[in-house]
């Protein structure tokens, strides 16, 4: 698992993917930091974090698109699967490498917090709540992206699938106003990534939300392992 993790991490940096991803992420995050925090003389980073939700949705497929599809296309999965490693180890190695790149991206928000701290005392608890929320959101989205990447050997399809999944997650919230039955509404609220994320951005670290995102990670990593298994048996 660690061998795969190391290889994937190195691979991100030997190709332009990591640099482009991190640069774009920093650019957007800094723009919102400037526009919503510095310009309005505020110490609150809440607006930055809530816009990073959308940015993560659209940038994460770039991180995950080649994660497993490339191995399948170039048949390097044969080396991985026939090596004395469990399939979970293979998937986790790749998954954690993507999470690491994502983490490097979101660390910029802590730099912003330090910049704010130079002028006034920020609410550190709220900022760490934000940070954990953003991290969990990304971890869950990366798990979904990894799963989509395992379904195809074409990177473009994996990326488009990832965008579609991200867009669908955004649209889910729009459905609440359309669906009239209270049961339907509560189901939508239950699966909504945005509502869960909102409670982080107002500074509430709800245990249920943490469990929600972690379950999504576990579920989709599990699905990915099943995809590998199924391919062997088919």
């Amino acid at each position: 698992m660690f061998a795969i993790f190391r290889r994937e991490t190195r691979n991100y940096f030997s190709s332009p993917i990591a640099y482009i991803y991190i640069a774009v992420f920093y650019a957007f995050a800094s723009f919102y930091f400037f526009a919503t925090t510095l310009m309005s003389n505020s110490t609150s980073l809440s607006n930055v974090f809530s816009s990073l939700f959308t940015i993560s949705l659209f940038l994460i497929p770039i991180l995950t698109m080649r994660l497993l599809s490339e191995d399948r296309r170039y048949k390097t999965d044969q080396a991985l699967i026939t090596a004395p490693v469990s399939i979970l180890g293979i998937v986790m190695g790749k998954y954690l490498a993507a999470v690491l790149i994502y983490l490097i991206g979101i660390l910029i928000t802590l730099v912003m917090a330090v910049i704010v701290a130079l002028f006034a005392t920020p609410d550190w608890a709220v900022i760490f709540g934000h940070f954990i929320g953003l991290f969990l959101l990304g971890a869950a989205l990366i798990a979904i992206g990894t799963f989509i990447s395992s379904l195809t050997e074409n990177q473009v399809i994996a990326a488009v699938g990832g965008f579609a999944a991200g867009f669908a997650l955004m649209l889910v919230d729009a459905l609440t106003s359309v669906v009239s039955s209270p049961l339907g509404q509560s189901i939508i609220e239950g699966v909504s990534f945005y509502q869960r994320y909102q409670s982080f951005t107002v500074g509430v670290l709800d245990f249920a939300d943490v469990i929600f995102y972690l379950s999504v990670c576990v579920l989709f990593v599990f699905f990915t392992v099943r995809v590998f298994e199924k391919r062997r048996w088919s």
């Binding site: 061998a3 795969i4 290889r7 170039y74 048949k75 390097t76 080396a79 991985l80 490693v85």
Partner: peptide, 20 residues
């Protein structure tokens, strides 16, 4: 099953670790 974007040295190093 070769990773084309690695050097021979990197690749063998990786496979060595992978096979423990």
């Amino acid at each position: 099953p070769l990773y084309l974007d690695m050097t021979v040295a990197e690749y063998l190093d990786f496979m060595f670790d992978l096979k423990r």
